[in-house]
């Protein structure tokens, strides 16, 4: 980020004869919280001051185009939007109920296997830090946990925090410069996956492994149910992630079954590798070669969506309405 320092920092906590921050001190002389800076009262992408920043929470309905149809443009970014989960207790399934946006429920993360966390009003989910997703998750302070990340623009490889995808410490990936504000098959994020052989395989560079820090059982086929299924193969106890749908034949005709298949932006596949020159409009599904990998993000938005379980599409209303995103891969189940 190369913008005026005052856009984010305040030297004296004073501006226009008023305090910038009254309620609490902000580390690093920040003039607002994570939520504060990434919240907008409009659905635009670029605020009037010209500062380009991803709005993850809009206080007005940003609209949602589940199919990402270019002819029906809606400015929801790749992670979705917290607008819907902020709608009160009845909306708690529509995203992560992050502090400052949505009320906390006293519960452990769904599918939690190892984190041992319980989030409640005293220890809510935060954007960053020990109870958050972004930054160094070993650091308590949210601001401190993302130290330097906004000032760095190093190549993403997941080897350092500064080189991590979207400040998700250790995660690899390829970032769309406008956070999928505009979206096509060749203008998008590319998520990091892997072709797993064993259920126990786990790598911090994978987006799904990252989710598994809190939702660990959901990453494994056999965890937490008492049903032993140690093989990482069908029949599955849980829907697998970090598995390649390429070359499977049978019911899997993603993108219409063409080879290579058109990339479906509404159900993005991750990859073990990243193509030179940016995302490809097609995906090679000729075999389990690492290009067509199911990740958590293939079905879910990280921040929130209009739909329960933060799904990318209105799956609950299907059939008869909504959209069967499952059918993008399970093409005979539509």
């Amino acid at each position: 980020m190369q913008k005026p320092c005052a856009n984010c920092h305040t030297m004296h906590n004073s501006q226009g004869y008023a305090f910038i921050n009254i309620a609490e001190r902000q580390d690093a002389l920040m003039n607002d919280t994570c939520v504060g800076c990434h919240t907008s009262s409009s659905v635009g992408f670029e605020d009037p001051s010209g500062v380009v920043q991803p709005y993850v929470w809009t206080t007005v309905n940003p609209g949602y185009n589940e199919m990402k149809d270019p002819s029906n443009f809606q400015p929801t970014l790749a992670g979705g939007n917290f607008y819907w989960v902020a709608g009160g207790a009845a909306a708690h399934l529509k995203g992560h109920n992050v502090e400052g946006i949505a009320g906390a429920f006293s519960r452990s993360p769904p599918g939690d296997g190892t984190s041992g966390k319980t989030f409640d009003s005293a220890t809510p989910i935060t954007c960053a830090g020990v109870n958050g997703c972004h930054g160094d998750t070993a650091v308590v302070s949210q601001v401190e946990s993302i130290r330097g990340s906004h000032h760095s623009n190093v190549a993403i490889d997941g080897n350092t925090l500064l080189g991590s995808y979207r400040m998700l410490d250790g995660v690899d990936g390829r970032e769309d410069p406008d956070w999928e504000y505009t979206l096509t098959a060749s203008d998008r994020n590319q998520y990091k996956g892997a072709v797993r052989i064993f259920d126990s395989e786990w790598s911090p560079k994978l987006i799904s492994s990252f989710c598994a820090r809190c939702h660990g059982n959901f990453h494994h086929d056999d965890g937490g149910t008492g049903t032993a299924d140690l093989a990482f193969s069908s029949p599955w106890l849980r829907h697998p992630v970090d598995i390649d749908i390429g070359g499977r034949g049978d019911e899997y005709a993603y993108g219409g079954g063409a080879a290579p298949a058109p990339f479906q932006v509404q159900t993005p596949l991750g990859s073990e590798f990243f193509p030179m020159g940016g995302p490809s409009e097609t995906v090679d599904l000729s075999g389990a070669n690492g290009w067509g990998i199911i990740t958590c993000i293939s079905c879910h938005r990280a921040h929130g969506s209009p739909y329960d379980y933060s799904l990318r599409w209105n799956y609950q209303a299907w059939p008869g309405g909504g959209y069967n995103g499952c059918g993008d891969c399970h093409t005979t189940k539509d």
Binding site: P70, S71, A185, P262, V265, N324, T331
Partner: peptide, 17 residues
């Protein structure tokens, strides 16, 4: 030719419905 609702979206219709 194959049905396409708009460029990029391709979903084959199976028999489940």
């Amino acid at each position: 030719g194959p049905v396409s609702y708009y460029p990029g979206l391709v979903q084959a219709a199976g028999p489940y419905l």
